[in-house]
Amino acid sequence: MSEHRRRSSLRLRPRRSAVLALMLVATHLLAAGVLLLMPLALVPRALLLLLVVLSLGYGLWAQCLGLAPWSLREAIWSEQGWQLRFRNGQQCEAVLLPSTLISVPLVILHFRVGWLRYPQMILTQEVIAPERLRQLRVRLRLQRSAT
């Protein structure tokens, strides 16, 4: 590729998001409300509510706060592909999956690392600079149109 067509690396290091945490809590509260309205016996309802609470705890711990060792901290997109860095310091090459969502207010990057690992990164203007988010959207759309 000629020198004038080379793109610099795009480094994505999202901040924590109170809005995303609030949305996570709201959706889990809605799920719990639906479970309470369903005509179920006490034991199955209690088990399902426990699963909703555990899911909320995991989502807050691993996704919103990023405290799990496998929490995705940084993604770097260069000409060699995607490089991911996790909270425990591990760095891995990754493949961006076609299930990645690209919209103006929100980009959700879905990756595959190895055989069974599928980390994701949720990006809004709250967690990453608006200009960086715009650059990412443009590059992703150009890549999709090229394939």
Rank of each mutant, 00 (worst) to 15 (best):
Met1Pro: 11
Met1Glu: 13
Arg6Trp: 03
Arg6Thr: 09
Ser8Lys: 11
Leu12Met: 04
Arg15His: 08
Arg16Ala: 10
Arg16Pro: 05
Ala18Tyr: 12
Ala21Thr: 13
Val25Thr: 07
His28Pro: 08
His28Ile: 05
Ala31Leu: 13
Gly33Asp: 09
Leu35Trp: 10
Leu36Met: 14
Pro39Met: 09
Leu40His: 05
Ala41Trp: 13
Leu42Pro: 10
Arg45Lys: 11
Val52Tyr: 10
Val53Ala: 15
Leu56Gln: 03
Tyr58His: 12
Gly59Phe: 07
Leu65Gln: 11
Gly66Ile: 05
Leu67Trp: 15
Ser71Ala: 15
Leu72Phe: 09
Leu72Asn: 05
Ile76Asn: 06
Ser78Gly: 15
Glu79Ser: 08
Gln80Thr: 11
Trp82Cys: 00
Gln90His: 05
Gln91Pro: 13
Cys92Asp: 14
Val95Phe: 06
Pro98Thr: 00
Pro98Met: 07
Leu101Asp: 02
Ser103Tyr: 10
Val104Asp: 14
Ile108Glu: 02
His110Asp: 09
Phe111Ile: 09
Gly114Arg: 07
Arg117Cys: 15
Tyr118Phe: 15
Tyr118Ala: 06
Met121Ser: 00
Met121Val: 04
Val127Ile: 10
Ile128Asp: 04
Arg132Trp: 02
Leu136Val: 00
Arg139Val: 01
Arg141Met: 12
Leu142Pro: 00
Gln143Thr: 01
Gln143Asn: 03
Arg144Phe: 01
Ser145Phe: 02
Thr147Gln: 13
